[in-house]
C-alpha cells in the first residue's frame, strides 16, 4: 500500500527514463532561481508597501483567516509540547537534586526556543501551504491576470496583505503558544510537585529578560514575513494545472520550514552578538 502511493507521489523514477532534454534543470539551479525570485519579491514588497491603495480591510481579513486556521492546532500542540518538555526535563534535574528549578528551566526553554519554534513550524505547515495553494490556483485559473487587467495591482491586493498579516499574526501566535506551553508545563509540575499556579509562573518568568522578549518578537516577525513571502512567491510562480498547484503548496511548506530553522539560528547568533556587546 505505502509503496505504491509513494512511487506515485514521487515521479523521479519516471523522469529518468525520459530523454535528458525533457528533464528539468538540476535542482540547485531551481533553488538559485527561487532564491533570486524571492529576493525580488522582498524588494518589491518594500517598494509597494507604502504605495496606495492601502488594503487595510483585506489585511484584517487575512489576519482573521490566519488566526482562525491555526489557533486550534497551535493550542493543542503547544499544550502537549509543554507537558512533554517538562516531563522529560525532570529526570536530569532530579539527578542534581534541583527539581525546584524546573519551572524556570521550562520558562526559559519555552519562551526562548520551544514556543517560537512550534508556532513557526505550524505556521509554515498551515499558513504557507494555504497561501501557496490559494494563490497557485488563482494563478492557474487566471484570477491574478483578471485582477491585473481590471486595473488592480495583484501584488498589492494579494501579496502585501498576506505578508503583513503573517508578520503581524505570528508574534501573537507565539505569545499564545508560550502561554499554552507554559500551562502544559504547569499541569505537569502541579501533578508532580503540587506547585501552585502563582509560584510556578513567578518562577517561570524569573529568569526571562527583556532581551528574550525582544528576541522572541524579532524571530516571530521574521518567521511570519518569510512564511508569507514564500507562500506568495510559490503561488505566483505556480505552473499550470492541478499538479502545479499541489507543488506550489508543497514547496511552500518545505521552504518556509527550512527558513524557520535558518531564522532561528540567525536570531540566536544576532542575540549572542548583542549580549556580548552589552555585557562586555
Amino acid at each position: 500500500m505505502q509503496n505504491t502511493s509513494l512511487s506515485q507521489a514521487n515521479p523521479t523514477s519516471e523522469d529518468t527514463s525520459k530523454p535528458r532534454k525533457a528533464r528539468g534543470p538540476k535542482w540547485w539551479i531551481d533553488f538559485l532561481v527561487d532564491l533570486a525570485g524571492i529576493y525580488l519579491f522582498v524588494v518589491r514588497f518594500f517598494k509597494d508597501l507604502f504605495r496606495p491603495p492601502y488594503e487595510f480591510k483585506e489585511v484584517l481579513n487575512q489576519c482573521y483567516i490566519i488566526g482562525y486556521k491555526t489557533l486550534p492546532l497551535i493550542a493543542f500542540t503547544a499544550y502537549i509540547g509543554g507537558i512533554v518538555f517538562t516531563r522529560q526535563s525532570r529526570p536530569s534535574l532530579e539527578s542534581f537534586g534541583a527539581v525546584s528549578w524546573l519551572p524556570s528551566l521550562v520558562g526559559v526553554g519555552i519562551i526562548r526556543s520551544l514556543g517560537p519554534l512550534i508556532a513557526g513550524l505550524i505556521g509554515a505547515g498551515k499558513i504557507a501551504s494555504n497561501i501557496g495553494a490559494e494563490l497557485g490556483s488563482m494563478k492557474v485559473t487566471e484570477q491574478i491576470d483578471a485582477m491585473e487587467v481590471s486595473g488592480t495591482n495583484p501584488f498589492t491586493f494579494l501579496v502585501i496583505t498576506r505578508v503583513l498579516a503573517c508578520s503581524l499574526m505570528l508574534p501573537i501566535l507565539v505569545i499564545f503558544t508560550d502561554i499554552l506551553a507554559l500551562l502544559g508545563g504547569f499541569t505537569n509540575v502541579y501533578f508532580g510537585e503540587g506547585v501552585s499556579f502563582s509560584l510556578y509562573f513567578s518562577q517561570a518568568f524569573s529568569t526571562i529578560e527583556m532581551e528574550d522578549i525582544f528576541a522572541s518578537t524579532l524571530k516571530s516577525v521574521l518567521f511570519g514575513f518569510s512564511i508569507g513571502i514564500i507562500g506568495c512567491y510559490k503561488g505566483f510562480t505556480s505552473k499550470k494545472g492541478t499538479v502545479g498547484v499541489g507543488k506550489a503548496a508543497n514547496s511552500s511548506v518545505v521552504m518556509s520550514m527550512f527558513m524557520v530553522f535558518v531564522i532561528d539560528l540567525f536570531t540566536l547568533q544576532i542575540m549572542t552578538f548583542i549580549r556580548n556587546i552589552l555585557y562586555s
Partner: peptide, 10 residues
C-alpha cells in the same frame, strides 16, 4: 477581458 475560465475570484 472575459477569460476562458471566467476567472471569478473564488
Amino acid at each position: 477581458f472575459s477569460f476562458q475560465l471566467s476567472a471569478l475570484y473564488d
